[in-house]
């Protein structure tokens, strides 16, 4: 693992963007909200991390989690259910 270079700031931000994008693709309201919240807090908490070994480990771990997120977002789109009572059925109606 030591041969793997330390991820750059840009790579980490790109990964974060991927997390948000895939979390947003959950059809299930509760799962979508949870993974958005979780992605934001995890990246925020580790923003100040300086130790290169730790950063590399977290980066690799997050890449694995992104894989889970991608697969599960697709599954969530395959089996859909009615929207819950707090969810607007039409995106346009949201502000009304």
């Amino acid at each position: 693992m030591s041969s793997v270079p330390v991820p750059t700031r840009r790579q980490v931000l790109a990964l974060y963007k991927q997390f948000i994008k895939n979390s947003n693709q959950f059809n299930n309201y509760n799962f979508r909200q949870y993974f958005l919240r979780k992605s934001r807090s995890t990246f925020k908490e580790s923003a100040d991390l300086k130790d290169t070994v730790q950063v590399t480990n977290m980066f690799n771990e997050a890449k694995k989690e992104l894989g889970i997120l991608k697969r599960q977002a697709v599954i969530s789109q395959m089996y859909t259910f009615d929207k819950t009572v707090v969810e607007p059925t039409l995106k346009l109606n949201h502000t009304q």
Binding site: I75, K83, T84, V85, T89
Partner: peptide, 24 residues
């Protein structure tokens, strides 16, 4: 009203939704 019809789940002592990471 422009909102869905599925009830909010607030009966976590009966059972909980399966975490997508668990399903994976």
């Amino acid at each position: 009203t422009g909102f869905g019809t599925r009830p909010i789940y607030l009966d976590m002592q009966a059972t909980t939704p399966t975490d997508p990471r668990v399903l994976d």
